[in-house]
Design a binder for these strands. Structure first.
Length: 291
DNA sequence: TGACAGGGGGTGT
DNA sequence: ACACCCCCTGTC
C-alpha cells in the first residue's frame, strides 16, 4: 500500500530500498517509512530532523481521522465500480505535500512516466536544491540522488532559487521542453511576490484559474497541484488513464477531457478527486492487462 | 551487447 | 491536429 501512496504518481521523491522500506524527502524532511509485520507504520529520521516530525508526518500522510469519514461519504453504495476500487486499496491516501514542490513536480510531468519524472526532480534537487544535514547512518548514506553530493540529501529548489537558474542548466536536468516552462514560471513567481501563497489560499475555482496562467500549466496539471499539494479534494485531474478508465467503466467512450471532468464532479460529488485517486490506482494496477 | 524505433500520466499554437 | 524534447523500454 505504501507503494500506491508514495510511488503512484502523487509524489516523486520516494524510493524503495532493498529492505522494503521507503526513503523520501519532502520540504526539508528526510524520512524512512517501514511497514512492520503487523502492518503498522514505523518511521525514522536523522536525529536532528526527528523533533516534531511525527506531527508533520501525520499531516503529510493524511493519517488524521478525517480521511475514513471522507471515503465513506463517496457514492460507493450506488457505484459498483467505485466500491470495487475502494475495496482494492484500503489505506490509500492523498498526500498533503508542499504546494510549491508539487507545482514543480507536475510541471515536469507532461508526457513522462513516473520513473522519468523522478529522475528529473532528483537532478533538480541534487544540482539546485539546498543540501540537508549530512547523513551519518550507514543505511542512509548510500542513497545519493546525483553525482555531485552522493552522501547528502538535497531538498528541491524553491521557486526563488529556480528563478536564478539559467534555462540551459535546467535543460541539463533532462527536462527537455519543460525547462522553458519551469524557467518562465520561476520568473513569473519571482516577479509577483506572494502570488504562490495567495493562490494556495484561494477557493478551488479561483486557484485553478490562477495556476492555469502559468506557462506549462493546463487544467490537468493545475488539478494535480491542487489535489496533491493543497488538499483540494474536489479537484478532478483528467489524464489519459482516467479517460480510459471512464470510457471503460462508465461508458464514456469518445468523451472529451472537459466533459469527463464535469461528469466526475457531478457523479462523485464534492470529493471527486478522492474518488479519482482510487480509480486511477485501480486502472494502473488492473487495467493494463485487460486491454 | 548494442543499436533502433516507438511512445510517453500535457500544453501551446 | 501537431510540434515540443529526449529518455525509457522493449525488441531485434
Amino acid at each position: 500500500m505504501l507503494q500506491e501512496i508514495l510511488d503512484g504518481g502523487q509524489a516523486f521523491r520516494w524510493s524503495r530500498e532493498a529492505s522494503g522500506s521507503w526513503l523520501g524527502v519532502f520540504g526539508s524532511n528526510v524520512v524512512r517509512l517501514t511497514l512492520n509485520s503487523n502492518g503498522a507504520l514505523q518511521w525514522s529520521a536523522p536525529s536532528a530532523h526527528a523533533a516534531d516530525l511525527e506531527t508533520t508526518l501525520i499531516h503529510y500522510l493524511a493519517l488524521d481521522g478525517e480521511f475514513t469519514r471522507q471515503i465513506d461519504s463517496l457514492p460507493w453504495r450506488s457505484d459498483l465500480h467505485l466500491n470495487r476500487c475502494l475495496t482494492a486499496f484500503p489505506g490509500l491516501r492523498i498526500l498533503r505535500q508542499p504546494f510549491g514542490e508539487t507545482l514543480l513536480g507536475f510541471l515536469c510531468s507532461a508526457t513522462k512516466q513516473i520513473v522519468q519524472i523522478k529522475q528529473m526532480v532528483a537532478l533538480l534537487a541534487a544540482r539546485h536544491g539546498a543540501p540537508l544535514l549530512e547523513i551519518k547512518t550507514t543505511a542512509l548514506s548510500d542513497r545519493g540522488t546525483g553525482q555531485s553530493s552522493p552522501d547528502r540529501f538535497h531538498r528541491l529548489p524553491t521557486w526563488s532559487e529556480l528563478a536564478l537558474v539559467p534555462e540551459t542548466e535546467l535543460r541539463a536536468c533532462l527536462l527537455g521542453f519543460r525547462a522553458r516552462y519551469i524557467h518562465q514560471t520561476a520568473q513569473f513567481i519571482a516577479a509577483n511576490p506572494g502570488w504562490l501563497q495567495e493562490t494556495e489560499q484561494l477557493p478551488y475555482t479561483m486557484a485553478k484559474e490562477r495556476l492555469c496562467q502559468l506557462p506549462g500549466v493546463g487544467e490537468k496539471v493545475a488539478d494535480c497541484v491542487l489535489l496533491f499539494g493543497a488538499g483540494r479534494l474536489e479537484a478532478f485531474p483528467v489524464d489519459v488513464w482516467i479517460i480510459k478508465a471512464m470510457a471503460k467503466r462508465y461508458g464514456l467512450e469518445g468523451w472529451k477531457p472537459a466533459q469527463i471532468a464535469h461528469f466526475g464532479r457531478t457523479h462523485f460529488g464534492a470529493l471527486a478527486g478522492l474518488a479519482q485517486q482510487y480509480l486511477f490506482a485501480y486502472e494502473r494496477k488492473f487495467g493494463r492487462q485487460e486491454i
